[in-house]
Amino acid sequence: MARWQPGAQERLQAAAMQLFTDQGFERTTVAEIAAAAELTERTFFRHFADKREVLFAGQDDFQELFTDPIDAAPGDTPAYELIRRSLAGAGGFFPDERRPFARARAGIIGTESSLQERELAKLAALKIRLGELLRQRGISEPSATLAAEMGVTVFHLSFQQWIAEGEQRSLSEIARERLDAMAALVSA
């Protein structure tokens, strides 16, 4: 095994995803992942705390996709517009070339209840963070919490549609459609 080969993290992730798909998450070991990537276990642990982190690495970066557009908005921006900007910002992180990885990741997560719980916890943490940001901007309760919940729900539904077989629209387009449907529901 060569030391210091470039792209170690990406190779580990690709190897892990293939093994998770082929033999299941629980039956795959870190040693197998490292060997498939032609790296050592030590190198694996330099990049990931455990094999779950292959699927969940980057939680802070994930939240920033949603929070950065809110931080950048003018101070008097209404809650609905903040959520719209947040969803648009997150949508830009998911171009078409990420769709196959996202589909594979969702398939793997769907096979293990512990991974499903972790995914739900990630979304719950995002709701909490968005609610905090909205309250910091002076949006009162219950509006701040409702807007945060709505934003994450719209994202989750949009993401599920985006990874569906045969779907060709962008995540941003789907999110706009879902957000418009939510607005129509509320105004009806």
Rank of each mutant, 00 (worst) to 15 (best):
L115H: 01
A37M: 07
G58Y: 01
D68T: 15
E32D: 12
K51W: 04
R46D: 11
R99G: 03
I83S: 06
A35G: 08
A104G: 10
A88V: 12
I70N: 09
G75S: 13
H47F: 10
D71V: 13
A90P: 00
E117T: 12
T67G: 08
A121C: 04
L120E: 12
E53W: 03
L55Q: 06
I70Y: 11
A36Y: 07
R84L: 13
G75Y: 05
H47M: 04
A121P: 00
K122F: 06
F101C: 00
A104R: 15
Y80R: 15
V54L: 03
P78L: 02
Y80F: 14
E64D: 14
L82Q: 02
F93M: 11
T40P: 05
A102F: 07
R99W: 04
T77E: 05
A102S: 09
F94T: 03
R84D: 15
E97F: 11
R42H: 15
L82E: 03
A104M: 14
A90C: 06
E38F: 15
F62S: 06
I33G: 12
A104N: 13
Q59Y: 05
L55H: 08
F56Y: 07
P69E: 12
S86V: 06
E112P: 00
A104V: 12
L115M: 04
F66L: 05
D50W: 09
L123C: 05
D71W: 11
L123A: 11
L123E: 08
L123Q: 10
A104T: 15
T67D: 07
D68E: 15
F101P: 05
G58V: 01
D61C: 08
T77R: 05
R85L: 15
L39D: 03
L39Q: 09
A36G: 03
A121Y: 05
T77Q: 07
P95S: 06
S113G: 01
R105K: 12
A104Y: 03
S113Q: 13
T40H: 06
R46P: 00
P69A: 09
R118Q: 13
G91S: 07
L39G: 01
P78E: 04
P69C: 09
E32L: 03
E32N: 05
D60I: 13
G107T: 06
L39I: 02
I83V: 14
F93P: 00
E81K: 10
K122N: 12
F48D: 10
S86A: 07
I33T: 09
E53T: 06
D96I: 02
E119Y: 12
S114Q: 10
E97W: 09
A88K: 11
T67Y: 11
E32R: 07
L39V: 03
F62R: 02
P78G: 02
E117V: 10
I108V: 13
F93T: 09
R99T: 02
E112D: 15
D96Q: 12
A57C: 08
F94P: 01
R98C: 11
T40W: 07
T67M: 15
F62N: 04
L87N: 00
A121I: 08
E112Y: 02
E117D: 13
A36V: 07
F93W: 14
R98K: 14
F66H: 09
F93S: 15
E32I: 00
A73Q: 08
S86K: 03
F101G: 02
